[in-house]
Amino acid sequence: MNAPNHTGLPEIIKKHETDLLADWLKEQTALATRQQVSLKEGELKSQCSEFLRLLRKGTQGNNPDISTPEWAEMRELLTSVSRSRAQQGFTPTQTATFVFSFKKSLFIRLRKEFANNADALADETWTATNLLDELGLFTTEMFQKTREEVILRQQQGLLELSTPVVMLWEGILALPLIGILDSARTELVMQSLLQKIVETGASVAIIDITGVPTVDTLVAQHLLKTVTAARLMGADCFISGIRPQIAQTIVHLGVNLGDITTKANLKDALALAMKQSGLTVVNTKKLKEMAA
């Protein structure tokens, strides 16, 4: 807690930079063999020397709080190290080893440097160990974050897969929604519908909720907002397939679907959309029969 006002770490790192780097690399290679992971030597070396440079820079500021701007470059380095290790399939332990393995090399130097000053040795060791622990934990955190990002990306991918916007006719889009709608999914779906309207220049969009078991207030509001946003963009938006229970819920929730055009099923909504676009469907067989 009581970090000494001035730490000798930057000088020591500067003085022994080459040795520290060599020791540390050897240590990591040994650990890597034990943990059965393969490290790219060139990449590792540049990461390590960069780490040393930034550690020296960071400790010069005498600020042990690694969330401060002085440590910004260090955080960036560790983020990129954990990112690349996470992608290569390292475990969190193997990733954090990058930082923790440095302790041994550093402490050996400290012991030699402060051989005659037990107090200073204790202080410096304490400062160094705290700092390296923090940096190591940060590395693990970043590792976790990278993994979470992957999961998030996959979730988003799934969401987008589960809600395709289809073109029913020139100028008429449909968004058949299936499954439980939560607020996040509804929002994403709505954005992609509006985006598709711009891309295709479709002037009518139908949101079909036949496959949606329940609608809560938030989802109903999102539907409402989407219809309004589509109107601001210059497109009409209908909602079809509202089942009796959902109609009841909507009324009970007090959501006013006022100006929204709703249809019992997709067929009726399509018929209306075609009528609005000036399109008619003709049964040519019947026409022929009548002519005959």
Partner: peptide
Amino acid sequence: VVGMQPAVAITLVELGMSM
């Protein structure tokens, strides 16, 4: 009024303006 972008439209609705 023509060509309003989707993000702009969503934001306007959220802001409380449906014009």
